[in-house]
Amino acid sequence: MILKGIPVGPLGANCYVVGCEKTKEAVVIDPGGDVARIRMLLAEQGLSLKYIIDTHGHIDHIAANDDLREATGAKILIHEADSGMLGDSKLNLASFMGFSTTFKPADKLLTDGDFIEFGELKLEVLHTPGHTPGGISLKAEGAVFTGDTLFNGSIGRTDFPGGDFDTLINSIINKLLALPDDTNIYPGHNSQSTVEAERKFNPFLR
């Protein structure tokens, strides 16, 4: 598996490029801006983009959706419960940042338990609401991409529209901490961690 991560956009959200070493098919997770850098990373790795996956519908994770789709022909995927955020600047928080930005609809809506296949790889969709109603995490072999659900030593905010603290904690405990301890966590912001480290040291989960 090819895995590269870069911070993008004004809030430095983590954008991940995941590719199949054999077929060179790839996905981009959370293209929150800097489309030229994302395309350069794909080119450097010789990857062909199949899917753009939004872990949730906030602007710092979706800002390059339309530009990247137009440039590559890749399909945009988002959980069905967050699909309406793409076209609503209040829900996607663009208005919170002083913009009225909206985005075109996704090509496919995801639900819990779906598998996203590219090359010889696949990601399992784990519905992990709480930060947003349609927040998802993406499980790969030995890794999970958690968006803004779970961070290194912290958790996602729940004070935005659609957020709920109890729902978020339940998602983390029942979906993420249920994974093997040595599972690497690749969050939507800041540095990576492991399931074991978050279970032991995350102050919100003790």
Rank of each mutant, 00 (worst) to 15 (best):
P180V: 06
G147L: 09
I76L: 10
L77I: 04
S95N: 10
A36Y: 10
D82W: 00
S193L: 04
A63H: 12
L49W: 08
H58G: 13
K139R: 15
I38M: 09
T101C: 02
I53G: 09
I136C: 07
R157H: 04
E25N: 12
F201C: 14
T101E: 08
N92G: 03
T158M: 02
T158V: 09
M85C: 09
A26K: 06
G156W: 00
N174T: 09
H61Y: 10
K90F: 05
Y16Q: 13
D114A: 08
S95C: 07
G135V: 00
L176E: 03
D107P: 07
L86G: 06
P203V: 06
I52F: 05
V35Q: 13
T102S: 11
L121E: 15
N65D: 14
P129W: 02
F103M: 04
G57D: 02
D67E: 15
E198H: 09
K104R: 13
G84I: 01
I53T: 04
N92S: 07
E198S: 09
L123D: 11
G46A: 09
N170R: 14
T55P: 02
A74E: 13
K75D: 10
T23R: 13
I172A: 00
F165K: 14
G134K: 00
A140W: 06
S89N: 02
M40T: 07
M1R: 14
K139A: 14
I136V: 14
L205S: 11
T183W: 03
E44D: 10
L138H: 08
K22D: 08
F204S: 11
I62N: 04
V18I: 15
I136Y: 09
M1V: 12
T23G: 11
D88Q: 08
G142S: 12
P31M: 13
G87V: 05
T72I: 04
D166A: 12
V8I: 13
K4E: 12
M40P: 00
I6K: 05
A81T: 01
A36T: 13
T149N: 03
H61K: 13
F151I: 01
G135D: 04
D54Q: 15
R157D: 00
D159F: 04
I2D: 14
I6C: 04
M85G: 09
A13P: 08
P161G: 08
M40A: 13
